[in-house]
Design a protein around this nucleic acid. Structure first.
Length: 842
RNA sequence: GCCGGGAUGGCGGAAUGGUAGACGCAGCAGACUUAAAAUCUGCAGGCCGCGAGGCCAUGCGGGUUCGAGUCCCGCUCCCGGCACCA
């Protein structure tokens, strides 16, 4: 054994050992005591930095811990390997996305190994591999069969910089989440997944996800955006010349039907499809059409702007309020959104801030229909809409009701009368999956002039990506320029037809990969139903909070859809979710704290750090940096502490190994023979086991666990364990040191393996059971008793443990410390917390 | 605006209603060394005091309790999600 901690020598050696021994090779046929520990599979960008590392290090620590606790752990890894960056790079450099992706995978795999992260590499998958995307395509066809995949012309979010459409989820404040270019609205034929069919279940089942962070569930609830309200149909008044209309009414959705008697106009979205028919031939037609055209142009960007001025035009038409038969004007206004509700609203200026602003601007009528309890609302003094609860006023037969009750009554009335009723509305839109891109799974559909859209027969899957394509940003998929790809006979009639040239959003690939790990090379089926049912839901899913909505919602949707197709027997994919915080680093330029990322130029590469300190040190620091669910600041000096600790541990074993080996395998002597110091060391050892285990089983508080282990080290260092030490001390010291190594092994596995062997144990610490607490060791003869006088801590003293409360009280009242504070006072009450504290009230 | 999370020394953070600041970083003093690095020992929330000791202190204000960082009520600020959502 070397005196200096030779991490560079031992770490590769142990990694080789783990792989050769197949320690993370999991037999999934046996599912007894299973533990599926999954890390979100990464997109293979150029290289990993220490910020990414947190995810893998946390996951590896959990996997190793669970393995030592006797679980059959499945910890697979793969690659979310399709995606825009590789294709964008291809446009720039001409390097084929497959080539750059494969190179990046090799780099990242090397980095993961260098970290000491253990995976069952036999199960490695890459979503860009035909053996994988074949089944992504197959699942598309299944969804298509079930009516859950459909094509529709739709206004889509178009990023002119990325030259593709984006999902709603990828548009952040009117900008492309990827390149931050402003997003335009375009109308295109696109493929959708009908996720809205699952909106209610996606909300309801969040209740069952006890193992998910509350904030992630909240984010999903917000995103799905369930709202309960009332739908109402307003009849149109006939045209002045009595010419017929294609429609006779306009529907609107409201959550405040209680305010209906204050409705003074109706407002419709400028892009409402009925609008052209409504105004055809009217004097207002030209103005309305022009207004619609203008607002469409500024739709996406300006309508998002904070200080949006509400504009609108009168349509020239009137509708009738079904409650009081009043004729009110129909306006076209850009504050009404087409893709929420019905695209038309009943406007109640007195009780809605937006309607108030609009009515004031265009001088429209305002009428109070909800009074606050003081009856104090008065139009001449009101300066803003009253949106709080109150009592219905001037509301015909519904007057005088608490407004919440009025909502129910008035909705019932609408239903009875047949002009409306209750309606549940969701903010969630269907998932747009078409991408005008090459580097994704081709959508397996063929277009035939005679037969229309025809699914590719299953036995012709995969629809392979052609290799010879040119990467030019044209706004169309590069696939359209490949005749070999595009031209194909119609599967139905055999006539020449053409393929769909769009590929699927990469979130489709990642919506089912966790199922494929159970049968990664299966060429007969997408998922192995029996194996999935044994191993899923995933016991612990670990990843970044940035996927709180997109990936995690889509994966839940897929799981439910596959469940309904009877392909799997569970309908939630992830039982426990852990979202680790981001690693940030201060910018050297401006001192600001940013998420570690290449674009911010504040990345720390693990390669150099591992070379300088070793993987275990990097792991230990990464876990010690703070509570793993919270963001943390990477501090270059902090790693020194981790390094110091491991070197100190190494030195300790180096110095004591001969004398400790001499007592290997010997049972501990009778506790009656221990000196107080020995007893205390043993107590500390077992208290540490207890604390570390609690820290691991609870919320994965590795930082607290490591602190406990360091404390044990500090105590242990006060004991001489050399050849001249008492044998009992050496035995207890050996137990302490071995325990420390075992507790440390999930965090710093290489050094733990090495030191374990140096103490004379056989190799393979992962096969050793997690240490168990000896309750007897925790019992103390004497404990510190904190003395409080009137709730204030005044000192402490030693007292025999386990005394009766009366005896504690009697003893303590004799102490000088206590006498000093109680002199001249009457002791009124004494509170005794056994073995801990005495509070004297006087 | 609605929803969720947070606030503890110079810094990261620890604390089943029971000694607030464990553990670590940075700092200071000392030992070893020709010197440095490494290592080791000690000090270290603030204020008052020579000292013994005392007072203050977990964002702010109340409350419950023998006792509150922890529980309850009311705020402030910060972070995140949603938002012209009808």
């Amino acid at each position: 054994m070397q005196q200096q901690y030779p991490f560079a020598e031992i770490e590769p050696r142990w990694r080789r050992y783990w792989e050769e021994e197949g320690l993370f090779h999991t037999d999934t046929d046996a599912a007894g005591n299973k533990y599926y520990c999954l890390m979100m599979f990464p997109y293979p960008s150029a290289a990993l930095h220490v910020g990414h590392g947190r995810n893998y290090i946390i996951g590896d620590a959990v996997a190793r811990y669970k393995k030592m606790r006797g679980y059959n752990v499945l910890a697979p890894m793969g690659w979310d390997a399709f995606g825009l960056p590789a294709e964008n790079a291809a446009i720039k450099t001409g390097i084929h996305p497959r080539e750059s992706t494969m190179r990046n995978i090799a780099t990242m795999k090397r980095q993961l190994r260098a970290w000491g992260a253990c995976y069952d590499w036999d199960r490695e998958i890459a979503s860009c591999h035909p053996g994988y995307y074949r089944w992504t395509q197959w699942l598309f066809l299944k969804l298509y069969e079930k009516g859950l995949a459909y094509k529709a012309a739709a206004p889509v979010n178009w990023c002119s910089s990325c030259r593709t459409v984006l999902a709603n989820e990828q548009v952040v404040e009117g900008r492309c989440e990827r390149c931050e270019a402003s997003v335009e609205e375009k109308r295109m034929e696109q493929w959708f997944f009908r996720i809205t069919a699952y909106a209610q279940r996606l909300i309801d089942d969040l209740e069952r996800l006890d193992g998910w962070p509350e904030r992630v569930k909240t984010m999903q609830r917000n995103w799905i955006g369930r709202s309960e309200g009332t739908v109402l149909e307003f009849d149109l008044t006939p045209r002045a010349d009595n010419t017929p209309d294609p429609m006779t009414s306009v529907k609107c959705y409201t959550t405040r039907v209680d305010t209906i008697y204050g409705c003074t106009y109706m407002a419709m979205a400028p892009e409402h499809p009925a609008l052209p028919d409504l105004v055809r031939g009217l004097a207002t037609e030209k103005e309305v059409t022009e207004y619609s055209r203008q607002s469409a142009r500024r739709a996406t960007r300006d309508r998002m702007a904070d200080e949006q001025q509400k504009t609108g035009v009168f349509s020239g038409r009137y509708v009738v309020n079904p409650y009081n038969q009043e004729r009110i004007p129909l306006w076209v206004a850009d504050y009404v959104l087409m893709d929420y509700g019905t695209g038309a609203v009943m406007a109640v200026p007195a009780h809605d801030t937006r309607d108030w602003a609009f009515a004031k601007r265009y001088d429209l009528a305002i009428r109070i229909s909800i009074q606050n309890t003081e009856q104090s609302l008065d139009l001449t003094t009101m300066t803003a809409a009253y949106t709080d609860d109150g009592i219905t006023a001037d509301s015909g037969p519904f007057s005088g009701l608490p407004n919440r009750d009025a909502i129910a009554r008035m909705t019932d009335f609408a239903k009875e009368q047949g002009f409306g009723g209750p309606m549940v509305h969701y903010r969630l839109r269907d998932w747009l999956i078409s991408r005008q891109r090459y580097w994704g799974a081709p959508i397996p559909i063929i277009y035939c002039d005679d037969c229309g859209s025809v699914p590719v027969p299953e036995n012709e899957l995969p629809v392979r990506l052609p290799d010879n394509v040119e990467f030019r940003p044209t706004g169309e998929s590069p696939l359209t320029a490949s005749p070999a790809f595009m031209q194909t006979p119609c599967p139905a009639c055999g006539k020449p037809a053409r393929r769909e040239s769009d590929t699927m959003d990469t979130f489709v690939d990642s919506s089912w990969y966790f199922l494929r790990y159970l049968s990664p090379r299966d060429e007969q089926q997408a998922v192995d139903t029996a194996a999935c049912n044994r191993w899923l839901p995933v016991d612990q899913y670990i990843g970044g909070i940035e996927h709180a909505i997109l990936h995690l919602l889509y994966a839940r949707f897929f799981t439910k859809a596959l469940h309904d197709m009877k392909l799997i027997g569970f309908d939630e994919p992830f039982a426990h979710l852990f979202t680790q915080g981001m690693i940030c680093k201060r910018s050297e330029k401006n001192g600001q704290l940013y998420k570690m990322s290449k674009s911010k130029g504040n990345v720390v590469s693990p390669d150099a750090l591992i070379a300088e300190y070793g993987a275990d040190t990097v792991r230990l620091y990464t876990l010690f940096i703070g509570p793993p669910e919270r963001d943390a600041e990477w501090n270059d000096q902090g790693i020194e502490g981790a390094s110091r600790y491991l070197r100190r541990l190494w030195r300790r074993v180096y110095e004591t190994r001969d004398s400790l080996r001499a007592v290997a395998g010997q049972p501990l002597p009778d506790p009656g023979e221990y000196t107080p110091a020995e007893r205390e060391l043993r107590r500390k050892t077992h208290a540490t086991i207890q604390h570390v285990t609690q820290s691991m089983d609870g919320a994965f508080h590795f930082n607290a666990a490591i602190a406990q282990i360091m404390e044990l080290m500090n105590i242990l260092d006060t004991h001489d364990l050399g050849a001249s030490a008492k044998e009992t001390t050496r035995r207890i010291g050996r137990e302490a040191l071995e325990t420390m190594i075992l507790l440390l092994s999930p965090f710093a596995p290489h050094i733990a393996e090495e030191l374990w062997v140096e103490l004379g144990n056989p190799p393979g610490i992962l096969k050793v059971s997690w240490p168990e607490v000896d309750p007897a060791a925790l019992i103390q003869d004497e404990t510190d008793i904190v003395i409080q006088i009137n709730g204030k801590t005044r000192g402490r003293g030693r007292l025999t443990a386990g005394l009766k409360d009366e005896d504690v009280q009697r003893a303590v009242l004799e102490w000088d410390l206590v006498k000093k504070h109680t002199a001249g006072k009457t002791v009124r009450r004494v509170i005794v917390i056994p073995d801990k504290l005495v509070n004297i009230v006087c």
